[in-house]
Amino acid sequence: MKMYLTNIFTDPERIDRLISIAKSSLLPLLEGAISYTIPLALISFVIGLTLAVLTALARISTIRVLQIIARVYVSAIRGTPLLVQLFLIFYLLPALNIIIDPFPSAVIGFSLNVGAYASEVIRAAILSIPKGQWEAGYSMGMSYQQLLKRIILPQASRVSIPPLSNTFISLVKDTSLASMILVTEMFRRAQEIAATNYEFILLYSMAALIYWVICFVLSVLQGFMEKRLNRYVS
């Protein structure tokens, strides 16, 4: 590290080299972010969220079998490393004669992961809605589905925004693990470029910076959404 920094400050040629590498790798990195990292995170989050709502509803349902399935699923995902899950899916599917590309298998892995974690958030949010809201809906003849859709989930979503934003931001960064199963997302691009010129620190710093920018934009969006959904709270 000391050597690296000393070089930058004293050797003009070294600076030129770093700048030219930074310039030429910025586009491939951004391309990796735009065509893989962001879509991977976005698609997995949408599927994961759907899975999470269903899992949360299964957990709070009175049907024993559903409760057990949901519990086992959440426990298995939370109890194993994400990287191991990705590897398992990557190798397991071909073994079952299901041949799919790395990208969709990464989507499956991340969706399952988000589904389990977010289901706990959503379950807690649903349980935080006062019992009187259910009673008011039932008393006017609403069905369970109508109540969920019109009364409970809209209120639960407000409570869930901060923790779900956390989940989404974590997910954006976790997509770097997809590099391990050959998805050419941003981090893998950085690795590949660095492998040709040995400027690991430069390329990983650039990748870090881009992740940071993406996550910063997401936090700003979170702020907007919280503001919008808080309009009916004093």
Binding site: Q133, E135, R158, V233
Partner: peptide, 21 residues
Amino acid sequence: ISSFRRLTGMVFQSYNLFPHM
């Protein structure tokens, strides 16, 4: 039960209005 409930209107001690509407 839900069609029977429509015959009665309930007013609660704690109002139970829908806060998001």
